[in-house]
């Protein structure tokens, strides 16, 4: 069955069609959500809510405008943004102590290996930078599709991605320099 047929069937409350769509897109969506939120429980909640919205609004999908996977990622993206904003509002008091957070981040970066450093650095990226990087690098979307999902221009996606990669590259270079220094000290 094509995506159009599946979505038409879901519009007519066909649960078996819904199951097929869930099985096809669940992995990709949960991975995307996890890379944005970094939390297993929230990832499961948001992924479930994304499919619930698909069930409720199947007839709103316009195949001429976007692929089904792009549409689903857009729903998940909006839910993630809402979730992050709600969470950050709730944690305003903790965020007020930003100098402590910054120094904690630096300490963590210095003490960990490359992969852990990367993970921490990704967590510290700006919302749009992280989204652009995840959508294009991990989810395999083109810059144009990522722009549709994020609801911004292609130029803005490219600029966000460039900034994200630049800051991660700097991290990598400083990590290499740090490793070389410690190797020399050991010798």
């Amino acid at each position: 069955m094509t995506d159009e047929e599946l979505m038409l069937a879901i519009g007519n409350r066909d649960e078996s069609a819904f199951h097929i769509v869930v099985r096809t897109h669940q992995n990709s969506l949960s991975h995307y959500v996890f890379r944005i939120l970094g939390n297993q429980k929230d990832t499961e909640d948001i992924t479930q809510e994304t499919f619930l919205r698909l069930w409720k609004n199947a007839e709103k999908w316009q195949p001429a405008k976007s692929k089904l996977t792009t549409w689903l990622h857009r729903i998940a993206h909006n839910l993630c943004i809402d979730h992050v904003r709600k969470k950050s509002n709730a944690e305003t008091e903790e965020l007020d102590d930003s100098s402590a957070t910054g120094s904690e981040l630096n300490t963590a970066l210095e003490q960990s290996n490359d992969l852990k450093r990367l993970s921490i650095a990704m967590g510290s990226l700006h919302e749009n930078q992280k989204n652009a990087l995840v959508l294009c690098h991990y989810q395999g979307f083109s810059n144009k599709e990522a722009a549709k999902i994020m609801g911004i221009s292609v130029k803005a996606v490219e600029s966000s991605m460039a900034r994200a990669k630049r800051s991660l590259r700097k991290l990598l270079i400083s990590s290499e320099a740090h490793n070389n220094k410690s190797n020399k000290a050991q010798l």
Binding site: V22, F34, T47, L118, L168
Partner: peptide, 18 residues
């Protein structure tokens, strides 16, 4: 390095949604 960054499995998620 980005490719090494893995995502955990969500074994119960599919049944939870379905």
């Amino acid at each position: 390095l980005l490719d090494q960054h893995q995502v955990p499995e969500f074994p119960n998620l599919e049944s939870r949604i379905l």
